[in-house]
Amino acid sequence: MSQIKTVLEKYPNAKRENLIPILQDIQEACGYLSREVVNEVAQYIGLPAAKIYGVATFYNQFRFQPLGKYHVMICRGTACHVKGSQKVLDMVVKALGIQPGQTSRDGLFSLGVVACMGACGLAPVVSINGEFHAKVTPKKLSGIIAEIRDKELSHAKN
């Protein structure tokens, strides 16, 4: 919670026009917007929590669950789309059992979708914790996910 205080201190007398920058800063600091945080911001700016949630859900950039240990970002830009990123996304949604913006219940994976990563030459491109995977197919990505799961499982066993 102290991280939020630091953010809010940067915005004395905040009004509704400061809402989005505040939310961005908080997400930067905490990784996501929790219910408690939204309530605190609501109190601070004097806006209803439902309103803030409405604004925040309007934009793709805000998350409402903490990031997973592995954050999977699927590029849905034009080039990746042409190269079949929809199929990749469908597979990963099914494999992880979560929608974009969500985090798996074990906290291992979170899923995000971006409009373009600027790596069109590698299309379809997927980034996991910032590491780019080029020319991804559903099969290839499902292998990567299985690999991560195995690794985590053996860690847990040891």
């Binding site: 219910r35 209803p48 439902a50 949630y53 409405g54």
Partner: peptide, 28 residues
Amino acid sequence: GVSAIDFVGRGCKAFVGTAFDSGLNVST
């Protein structure tokens, strides 16, 4: 002057809901 509900999401996925889409019973 309550604002328990608002539009959530955008475009064809938009719906009217409470904060964090929880039940009305725990909302304002």
